[in-house]
Design a protein around this nucleic acid. Sequence first.
DNA 1: GTTAGCATGTAAGGAGTTACATGATTTT
DNA 2: AAAATCATGTAACTCCTTACATGCTAAC
Lengths: 194, 194
Amino acid sequence: MAKRSAALELAILGVLAETPQHGYELRKRLISVLGLFSTISYGALYPALKSLVERGLLVEQDEVGTGKYPKRARITYALTEAGTAHFNAMVADSGPGAWDDDTFAVRMSLFGQTDVSTRIHILQGRRSRVEDRLANLQTNLSKGRERLDSYTLELQQHGLDALEREVRWLNELISREQGAAGSGNPQTSQVNKK
Amino acid sequence: MAKRSAALELAILGVLAETPQHGYELRKRLISVLGLFSTISYGALYPALKSLVERGLLVEQDEVGTGKYPKRARITYALTEAGTAHFNAMVADSGPGAWDDDTFAVRMSLFGQTDVSTRIHILQGRRSRVEDRLANLQTNLSKGRERLDSYTLELQQHGLDALEREVRWLNELISREQGAAGSGNPQTSQVNKK
DNA sequence: GTTAGCATGTAAGGAGTTACATGATTTT
DNA sequence: AAAATCATGTAACTCCTTACATGCTAAC
């Protein structure tokens, strides 16, 4: 029922699915591996972990006596079975918010834990979303061509270019995946490859 | 003391500085002219307007008997003197958050109400911000080249390309402004123009 | 020893979204 | 008449950010 929360939870589960970790390190990985959340405050991370534990998706493992640092107050988090199931469900999900910038980025950076058909599904879903935005912007732009001042125009044109480039990028990725798999259904895109 | 609030308030003041309007229409203009806020809910807009009125930056003018629709419950908002002053201060501001995506976009779309030096200032500030992000990403990427899987790499590379393009775009805009004005200080950029 | 980084958490406060609530006006 | 859209607002809820509070460990 949240917005970024969905992306954040997915990211947490995804990283922990690879390696159980404690909060402090988890945060660093989220920042570097996913690179997306420029800053994830502890005020967001710990409550999120807590919530995941309460829902039975994670378990806390107090790290006692790990060699050199016997009494360090570390809490290692690991996925439960339910957590793994939930993670898989979230990755494959197509619900609202599934193609948002953040959520898509998280899902793509977790592609390593996914199969080809899921990857293609996500890439195509994202492409639809971007194409929608593109269409909106174009409509908007052609409608108000004259009424908008040059700076607004310039700004929106730049946004438009970025979207077109993303579609082309997604097309390439999709082709690559389809090449790796058997043959999928042919692509339908509104943007030409140059 | 807010984040988006800063961008939203700036946008509201900027649009009202051109033409006083009532909430409903204001929202539509914010969406189409600025194009940035895909959705601005009334639950965000009206409280924001209320706050601006309370702070003496806007005045409400009950629209009575405007020809055909005598009793329509419209409230037209217009800037006060203090509001105009505040708007000008915000546009020229360099405080934290001044170069964020949203805030920058709002400021640029309001360039029509600005003088050349302010425009250059804003464009350069934005460029610095983008270059910082670029540097971070590059560091991050060279550090973890091997540890990151190919998808994460691909994703970050795409983000990097987008940032580089934005810097080039900003360089062009800055040159254009400097050409229009007298001669400004020469540019220093980390990204070559290819 | 003292600074810097590791490590976990809470509390206050702000901002925004969704859903709800109401009513006028215009179009079909 | 019914449906769409204009028009304004509120309440509950969720989430995040900032700042604070605590202590251990490593390095200089």
